[in-house]
Simulated scan of single mutants.
Amino acid sequence: MYIKKILLGIAIIGLIVAAFFANFVYKAMMRPNTAFNNEEAYVFIPSIATYEEVRGQLEPLLDDIDSFDNLAERKKYTTNIKAGRFKITKGMSNNDIINSIRSKNLPIKLSFNNQETLEKLAGRVSNQIEADSVSLLNAMKDATFLTENGFKEATALGMYLPNSYEFFWNTSAERFRDRMLKEYNRFWTDVRTQKANNIGLTQDQVIALASIVYEESKQASEQPRIAGVYMNRLRIGMPLQADPTLKFAAYQLPKYKNTVIKRVLNVHKDIESPYNTYKNRGLPPGLIAMPDISAIDAVLNYEKHQYLYFAADAKRLGYHKFAKTLSQHNVNAREYQRYLSSQGINR
């Protein structure tokens, strides 16, 4: 009888311990532990983050950070941090959260378009991934990388084609750059490469001309016609006389820093620069801005015609009037100059 009581007591104690353990397991692993009202929240864990840094991001999102700490310690997450962008869904348990931030790194959509310089591109990209703008710019300008892949600093921006791409948030500067090289090489299909050969331009020259075309017009429908004008000028040895290249040359000078040139004047035509296409024949040494893919394809598929001139259309802003003769062009140009003056645009 006495032994039975002892065994019963042991059994009861065992049940109590089991109940406490089950309660602990439920609280630590299974019970919902989110404190936010939205359906989901995201945490961004840097590549060299400590558990304390991760904990600092999680604490405002959780009801009970202590229970999370206990389970994180038991599952050895505290010494095995994973970098990336992770989603926490409303109602998740500690176990679900740990599984998510340990193994479910989510990609982001990274996008950029028409950045004027590598510096501006680095700044734009650094706002979307972990790599900072300095490391990105250093990777983009790395002399060994440029030489090995046939680029110069003047043409390096042309490697970055404006679009949306899928990346992990914790992508390094070098991995971003290397991925962009792959995208660039993928863009230059055999068909595009053959078209460039057929019109007598290298890939760098196509993109340099495309950057001028794009700065002249954002209208994809007339970009092939503008490209045709410049190809006609190149063919007969006429200077390109592209106003966007004058602006680019001017912006390299201290006196034009932090200014916006709205009207190209004769003084700009006197700037000494390899990008001054009024003084220098042929294409400039590199692109003047990042062109859209539409402008690149406009050069490769330029419209064949006899136009040598074009001027902005004062009655259809954003579009242009084209001319075969200088006399007709002067009429078109004077009309637009009068429009600028009427708007008080003098420089």
Results as ranks from 00 to 15, higher is better:
285 P>W: 06
210 A>Q: 10
224 P>G: 12
164 S>T: 15
164 S>G: 13
256 Y>A: 13
337 Q>V: 08
81 I>R: 00
168 F>V: 02
205 Q>D: 01
296 I>Q: 07
44 F>M: 13
255 K>Y: 09
217 S>Y: 10
114 N>V: 09
347 R>L: 09
212 I>Q: 13
233 R>C: 11
73 E>Y: 07
322 F>N: 03
123 G>F: 00
246 L>R: 06
4 K>G: 14
341 S>I: 12
70 N>H: 07
159 M>I: 03
287 L>N: 09
306 Q>W: 12
276 N>K: 05
29 M>N: 14
233 R>I: 06
132 D>M: 00
49 A>C: 09
283 L>C: 14
133 S>M: 11
251 Y>R: 12
274 P>L: 14
324 K>E: 06
315 K>D: 08
134 V>T: 09
162 P>Q: 08
281 R>N: 15
300 L>H: 07
29 M>P: 11
17 V>L: 07
157 L>N: 02
77 Y>N: 07
62 L>D: 01
328 Q>A: 12
260 V>E: 08
247 K>M: 15
253 L>R: 02
165 Y>C: 06
220 A>F: 07
186 R>Y: 13
129 I>C: 00
121 L>K: 04
154 A>Q: 05
308 L>K: 02
315 K>C: 05
111 S>G: 12
203 Q>K: 02
154 A>P: 10
116 E>P: 12
79 T>M: 10
237 G>L: 06
76 K>V: 09
173 A>C: 09
61 L>R: 03
195 K>L: 04
340 L>P: 08
17 V>E: 03
25 V>H: 08
224 P>K: 05
2 Y>H: 15
329 H>A: 01
268 H>I: 10
258 N>H: 08
287 L>D: 13
205 Q>S: 07
53 E>Q: 15
270 D>S: 14
250 A>I: 03
308 L>Q: 03
98 I>R: 00
264 V>D: 01
217 S>C: 11
316 R>I: 15
347 R>P: 14
261 I>Q: 06
194 Q>N: 12
48 I>Y: 10
264 V>A: 04
112 F>C: 09
216 E>L: 05
145 F>A: 02
115 Q>V: 03
37 N>E: 15
67 S>W: 04
142 D>Q: 01
206 V>Y: 04
296 I>E: 13
104 K>G: 10
185 N>L: 08
75 K>G: 12
37 N>Y: 07
97 I>L: 02
10 I>V: 02
10 I>L: 05
5 K>H: 12
236 I>P: 12
250 A>Y: 02
238 M>V: 07
104 K>Q: 15
140 M>G: 07
118 L>R: 02
341 S>D: 13
11 A>I: 13
237 G>E: 10
181 L>G: 03
205 Q>M: 03
245 T>R: 04
37 N>Q: 15
92 M>L: 02
305 H>P: 13
17 V>A: 00
274 P>C: 05
278 Y>M: 11
180 M>R: 05
32 P>D: 04
310 F>Q: 01
177 R>L: 01
218 K>C: 15
